[in-house]
Structures are given as structure tokens and as C-alpha cells.
Design a protein around this nucleic acid. Structure first.
Lengths: 128, 128
DNA sequence: CTTCAAATATTACATCTGTAATAAAAATAT
DNA sequence: ATATTTTTATTACAGATGTAATATTTGAAG
């Protein structure tokens, strides 16, 4: 599992759009982000370019515009970030992480129920 | 809840030592980090200095050396980072985060048990 | 073909970070 | 008091990031 390319926070916003709508053109990416952020279109172009340079996006010229496709899977990237987060802040200990979230975020009863059922589903899988 | 100062990854390593051993002198911090990292003492000095500038550490001259104390609580900082992580990667949804960890990290039966008991403890608290 | 507009590419620039080296100040030893 | 050592402060410098502006290329319109 070679380490995935580094994706900055701003670049990640771009990637969220690409992951959701790929294949997607420069203009479509730009239109969407202009609505959800305060970024100048030029800024968005730069971010897209950097993602290509980093090998996170590939593109194909379709008629006259570029159309982008992710080279990194969203789940892979989020998975990697999650593992790294857990290690950095909770020493890799999921229980202490969950415990902190429970203490700070004061989960609702229904959230707790959802989590409980997640844990039993996990059981099922292991039974196979 | 004013946003805490930004703490970089390397600075965070320094803070872990300070949080654990404060009040602690420059030399003690340096000695410990020299053992656990590959950093040059000069690098560690720089990091300490930056933390002071950022308002994360305060110091007091004790006889002839500086002794540092954190101005930011570890739990506050980790709490803020955790909330931000959850938002950025899981849309603030704890269940989907936990679900991803369960799927990727293949928790052991005893880990699952620990998590379950965490969830029941949460119950107790809410019953009060 | 030439011109214009749209798309893409190149350049810019400040701040933050990692990683030190050099310089100055303060204590200690002589 | 001066030299030496220790501690702290200042300076350095490249790469990443946020945030664009300018320049060039290319396809479309005339």
C-alpha cells in the first residue's frame, strides 16, 4: 500500500466534487465550487492543476475541454487519513477515540443505538 | 469557544512532551525529543519558540533556564481536532465514521466488547 | 485566414512548516 | 574582569499551501 499523494485541505474540497460527479469538466467543477466556497475561479483552476500534477486526477481532452477522473479512490484516501488521525491523536486506540467523542459530543440516544447496531453487524461478519 | 492556535504536526510532538511533563525546561524537552525523534536540538528549539509565539506555551525564567507550561489544554486541542476531522471526512456523522473504522481496521472481538461497554456507560450517564 | 473568446498554462507572492545554522546574551569558570 | 560555555534569539532557506493574476494556446465566429 504505497502512500497516497498528499492532498491539501483546499484540494480535498475539489476532490469531493470530482469523486461525486466524475467524469467532470473543469467548468463543472468550477461552477459547483464557486457556489459552495468563496474561491475565485482562478483559484479553483490552480487547485485542479495541482491535483493533476500530484497524480490524484487524470484528464482527457473531450472535444475542446478537459474532463477529469480521480486516480485515487475516496475510500482509500479517507481510510488513510483516518488511520493516521487515529494514530496521531489516540495512539491508534479506537476505544479511547470513541470514548472521547462520546464524552464531548454527547450523542443522542438514537445515535448510540446506531452505533450499537454497527457493532453487532460487525459480529455477524466475523461469524461467517 | 475561540479557535485554538494552529499547531503543526512537528509542534504537536513537542506539545505531547510538554503536556505530559510540564512544567518542563528547554533542555528536558530537548533531551526527550532527541531520543524519540531524529530531530536536531536546534530544530526542537525552533519548534518551542514557535509554540511560544503562537501562544500555545508560556514560559518563566527559573534561575537561569526557561521552564514551559501549556496555555492550551491537551483535551481541548484534541477535542477540536477530532471535531474538525469528523466534519471534514465524515460530514459530522459519528456512525459513518465508526462504520468505516470497523470495516477497515477489522477490530478484534475484545475491542468490539470494549466499544460496546463504552456505549452502555454512555447510557448510565444519560440516566442521571 | 483573421480575430475573439474560452480554456489552459505559467508566474506570483505571502504564510506556514520542516529543518537548521549563526549570532548574541548571560552564566560560569578562571 | 575576561574567557568559555550554555542558553536564548535571530536568520535562513526550500517546499507546501492559499489565493490569485497574467500569458499563451486553441477552437469558434466571421
Amino acid at each position: 500500500m504505497a502512500a497516497l499523494p498528499q492532498i491539501s485541505e483546499a484540494e480535498f474540497e475539489v476532490m469531493k466534487v470530482v469523486w461525486k460527479y466524475a467524469p467532470i469538466s473543469t467548468n463543472e467543477i468550477t461552477e459547483r465550487l464557486v457556489r459552495t466556497t468563496t474561491w475565485n475561479p482562478k483559484t479553483i483552476q490552480t487547485l485542479i492543476k495541482r491535483l493533476v500534477t500530484k497524480g490524484v486526477l487524470s484528464y482527457e481532452k473531450q472535444s475542446r475541454v478537459f474532463v477529469y477522473t480521480p486516480l485515487v479512490k475516496e475510500s482509500d484516501y479517507i481510510g488513510q487519513e483516518s488511520a493516521s488521525f487515529l494514530n496521531r491523536f489516540y495512539d491508534g486506540n479506537i476505544a479511547s477515540m470513541l470514548s472521547a467523542y462520546i464524552d464531548n459530543d454527547r450523542l443522542s440516544e438514537s445515535e448510540i443505538d446506531t452505533l450499537r447496531s454497527l457493532l453487532s453487524k460487525g459480529d455477524k461478519k466475523r461469524e461467517n
